[in-house]
């Protein structure tokens, strides 16, 4: 199977006074369809920087990034929003839902960005919320949802544009262990059943069993990249 994400020697340096700080140092990896890749490592190891580059939010200082075979690292800045809109779905640690919109509207907003008609967006939002088990929360506001429910709404929103890549930044960090497991199950299921390439940044070890593969970063470098045993019971 062809990789959906191909990163080759990605390097990111930040100016820090007169010195340069290397946040990412020649990282090379690829992520295939159906993969759930966990990015782990201590704080400051470069996980979020790598996730930002993979999400076309940040540009690498050097190296190349291909998404679905297209070199996005050379793309014009004006073309990157379209790449994010069409090919990438984001799930954030703090959910980043719009507090003034209902769960359904939060999901439909992603479709509005793509220019989908209001009627279709409504139907698709309802369907996506159903897929994450929140059909009855269509008209609920984020303030009325639990942390786990909010994150599932965020996952539904990430899926709205039907992107081949889902990038999740510590999606369970703000959740209790039960909600965290539920969220990971949803993500894992997406990868398996719908062939998404999923990259999850995680800080702790409790979610390690949900990944097909774990990439460990330290000081901006990959120090380990290994296939992991999947917790089958958790995926059911």
């Amino acid at each position: 199977m062809n990789p959906i994400i191909e990163a080759h020697e990605l390097t990111k340096t930040y100016a820090q006074g007169e010195a340069a700080m290397r946040a990412l140092d020649e990282v090379t990896l690829d992520v295939r369809q159906g993969d759930v890749m966990l990015l782990v490592g201590p704080s400051g190891s470069g996980k979020t920087t790598l996730l930002s580059i993979l999400g076309c939010i940040l540009r690498p200082t050097s190296g190349t990034l291909r998404i679905m075979g297209e070199d996005v690292s050379r793309m014009n800045e004006r073309d990157l929003p379209a790449v994010r809109r069409e090919r990438i779905g984001f799930v954030f640690q703090a959910f980043n839902l719009f507090p003034t919109l209902t769960a359904g509207q939060n999901v439909a907003l992603a479709l509005d960005l793509k220019g989908v008609s209001a009627r279709l967006a409504r139907e698709r939002a309802a369907s996506l919320l159903e897929q994450v088990g929140l059909r009855d929360k269509l008209d609920a506001y984020p303030a009325d949802l639990s942390g786990g429910q909010k994150q599932r709404v965020a996952i539904a929103r990430a899926l709205a544009g039907d992107p081949p890549v889902i990038l999740a930044d510590e999606p369970t960090a703000a959740l209790d262990s039960q909600s965290g497991r539920a969220v990971m199950q949803v993500l894992k299921k997406l990868a398996r059943e719908r062939g998404r390439a999923i990259v999850i940044v995680t800080h702790g070890n409790r979610m390690l069993g949900y990944g097909d593969r774990t990439v460990r970063l330290e000081d901006g470098r990959i120090v380990a990249d290994e296939r992991t045993a999947v917790l089958e019971g958790a995926i059911a």
Binding site: Q105, D112, A118, R122
Partner: peptide
């Protein structure tokens, strides 16, 4: 459920506070 077109998002942002 309404789809949040831009104008509705703008309106809701305004009336939120």
């Amino acid at each position: 459920m309404m789809t949040p077109r831009i104008s509705e998002l703008a309106w809701r942002n305004l009336v939120h506070d």
